[in-house]
Structures are given as C-alpha cells and as structure tokens.
Amino acid sequence: MLIVPTFIGVTLLSFTLIHLVPGDPIEARVGERGIAPERLAALRHEFGYDQPLWKQFVDYEVQVVHGDLGVSLVTRQTVWSEFLTLFPATIELAFCAIGFAVLIGIPLGVVAALRRGTPFDYGLMGASVTGASMPIFWWGLMMILVFSVGFGWTPVSGRVSDMYFVEPWSGFMLIDCWFSDDEGACRSTLSHLILPTIVLGTIPLANFARMTRSAMLEVLGEDYIRTARAKGLSGMRVTVVHALRNALIPVVTVIGLSVGGLLGGAILTETIFAWPGVGHWIIESIQRRDYPVLQGGTLLIAIIVIGVNLGVDMLYSVLNPRIRR
C-alpha cells in the first residue's frame, strides 16, 4: 500500500528535476542561437510549458497514469514507443549479466564457505572485494582492448554484425536469431553478448559470491546440518539440499535488490559497447537536451525498480514461510 505515495513521490521528483532546468526545456534545447519568439511561444504551448506549475504537475500526473510520457523533442515519437523498442536490448543484457553472476557467483560462494580459511577462500574473498570495487567503465574498455583489439576474439560494439539481418520479432536478439534459423547470426549475437555480459555481471558476481559465502557459513553452523550429517547423508546432499536451500533466502533478496544497481551499470556498459538499449538512449537524450526522454526514461526505470522490489518481497514470503502471516 506504500506504493501509491512512493509513486507520487517519484513522479513529483522527476517533474521537479526537469523544472530545475534553467529556463525551460524548449529554451534549453534551442540553445543560444535562439529562434523566433512566436515559434518559441508556439512550441512552449505545444508542450504545455506555458501553464502554471501546479497545473503542469496535475496534467503530468494524469498523463503518466494514462501511460502517456510525452513526446521526444527530437524525434517527435512518443517516449513510450521509443522505450519499448529499446528496452528488450537492456533486458537481454541485464538478464544475461544476472545469469552469469548467479551461475558463477553462487557456486564459488558455496565452495569458499565449505573450504573456509583455505587459500581458495582468501583468494576468492580478495577477488570479490576487488570485483565489487571495479570501475566497470574502465573494466569494459580493458576487456575490449585485450579480447577484441588484442586477440580479435569478440566484436567491439553493437548487438549483431551488420552482415546479418534478423527479423525483429520479439526484440530479444537471442530469441529472434534462434527462430531465424541463421547460424551465423546466432554466432554473431552470442559473440556480441559475451563481453557486455561479463562487464555488467562483474559487480553482482562479486556481491553474490560474498553473500552466498556468509549465508552458507551461517547455515552450516545450524543444528539441523549436524543432524543431517549424523543421519549419514552424503556431503553433497547436505550441502545442496539442507544448507544451500536455506542459505539462498538472503541471496535471493540480494539478487532482487541488485536490479537497480544493474540498471545503473547498464548505462555505463551500453555506452561503452554502443549497445542500443535504454541506458544508451538516456545518455543520448542528455547530449541532445531531449528532456521529455530523460524524464520519461528515468521515470520508467524507477517504476521497473518499484515493480521488481515488490516481486522480491512476494518471492521472499514464498521462500521463507516464517515471515508469512
């Protein structure tokens, strides 16, 4: 129920920020060259910047609730339609990054917990604090320098090579190229995905490994683990069924809460790899002074984060019956 005030607060914040632009968005976009005063007034009227502030806010609120996020000052397309065409690229990248981080981070954390105090444990913890401190915009460029420029293994940027045309059916390149039956396109898509996935997945990977390790250490000290061992169950079964299942509860929360940071990281990753997603779009909107896009895109990302947090809350009560009421 706290969603309604949070939502109003989020829209109020995104509204306020745009109105802190010196002058108004039209004036800022026009720049110092200026245009005819009549044209300026007409544009202001068209975008509603000539109304009193409170009225603009009420109008904005009504529009947002109706799913109308305004029109790009540059392309004249609706912000929503631009977002829809670009968002699948971001989801695809974020999904791969989370998958990469989960598939590698959780097993590493489990092994570190089982071998507590060994060189492997120390090495992994050192690596994970380093990974969590990583400036990913530098990390991505170093990867390009080594693997794309140095070895020539992976492409430098984009989602798929220009040599292939893939029918944009779902917007998810992996799905589209699968159905296009074009093996070359699939290979190209995969090779374009590898580096961005690793770069965006690095910080989550480090966090998941650390989190899994400490959650496992906590669980491994519990009585029921000793009971399970005493019953003569195999080490593997105790680790996976008894320990890991319980240790995963806090880890799932961390995974859910990392989505916000991931979308922030996507801005940097997409900028480095010229990945045509939402983050790239937002940075471009800043360079073009396209304030409706900046405002709408930011708001949509915030709404996604609210949705994911809600989902995590619900998932948490499914996973952890103790907090169910």
Partner: peptide, 11 residues
C-alpha cells in the same frame, strides 16, 4: 524511499 527507487548512478 523515493530517492532509493532510482538507481543511484542514474539519479
């Protein structure tokens, strides 16, 4: 809560 909804780098 409102500030926390935005990814910090984006905000």
């Amino acid at each position: 809560d409102v500030i926390l909804v935005f990814p910090s780098l984006l905000l």
